[in-house]
């Protein structure tokens, strides 16, 4: 394990849903600051649950989730919006607002923080430029392809300069060529210093990439390779 302070640290995390289903069983791992890693495993292995715990969509039944040196159990419900503003979330279904332009979608995190319109415009244009969509800034998301929509999602996730990017099957709806392109985009963002955790079951896509894989099997850690 690297000596850099961890951005994500899970200690013996157990998540049992109300129905009794055990989604995560004593899961421990950490992601170093500035690291990029893949969270893999078959569907139902607990990848989504793990991301939900980090995004405070769910709370663990037992164990500690420490993000950016902050124990999430110390964050009350009222503090969740502020906490989530510090994350960059990317979803399989893109989760865009389809009645708003590409620009307005990417601007939303800055709007939530109450930034000045001029500053918002500058930073959103920069983020759209990073994902190569600046020319589509005034279009509606429906007029874009799936890959382009996901890049809007990524622009929205990075526009607020989050300390951690969390992606849940970001290439799940994309063909291999587009998926590879999206992965290159994540790699580029990681080179810029952002910590990235990507949940995916597309092992073909990531097998050739030089990043650590954290594998979940039926809610257990399968491997915790040191990198």
């Amino acid at each position: 394990m690297s000596s850099a302070p961890a951005i994500i640290e899970l200690r013996e995390v157990v998540k049992r849903y109300a129905g009794g289903q055990l989604a995560l069983d004593r899961v421990s791992f950490s992601l170093a600051r500035g690291e990029m890693a893949f969270l893999t495993g078959h569907s139902g292995a607990g990848k989504s649950t793990l991301l939900k715990l980090i995004a405070l969509i769910e709370r663990p039944s037992r164990g500690q989730v420490i993000i950016n040196r902050r124990n999430l159990s110390s964050i009350p419900a009222a503090g969740i919006p502020r906490y989530r503003q510090g994350l960059g979330l990317i979803f399989q279904d893109y989760s865009l607002l389809y009645d708003r332009s590409v620009f307005d979608n990417a601007a939303m995190p800055l709007l939530l923080r109450g930034m000045r319109p001029t500053d918002i415009a500058r930073r959103v244009d920069a983020a759209l430029d990073t994902v190569g969509l600046l020319r589509y800034r005034d279009k509606l998301p429906v007029t874009l392809s799936g890959g382009e929509q996901q890049r809007v999602g990524i622009a929205r996730a990075v526009v607020g300069r989050p300390y951690l990017l969390l992606a849940d099957e970001p290439t799940g709806n994309l063909d291999p060529a587009l998926s590879a392109e999206i992965m290159r985009l994540f790699a580029r963002l990681n080179e810029g210093g952002t910590s990235v955790l990507i949940a995916t079951h597309d092992l073909n896509l990531i097998s050739s990439l030089p990043y650590r894989q954290i594998v979940l099997e039926h809610g257990h850690m399968a491997t915790a390779e040191a990198s």
């Binding site: 995004a55 969509i57 919006p81 906490y83 503003q85 989760s95 607002l97 009645d99 995190p109 939530l112």
Partner: peptide, 15 residues
């Protein structure tokens, strides 16, 4: 759906 997404992005109740 929009409200769900806004919450994920960290929108406060007031917003």
């Amino acid at each position: 759906e929009e409200i769900r997404i806004l919450r994920l992005l960290g929108a406060t109740d007031g917003f």
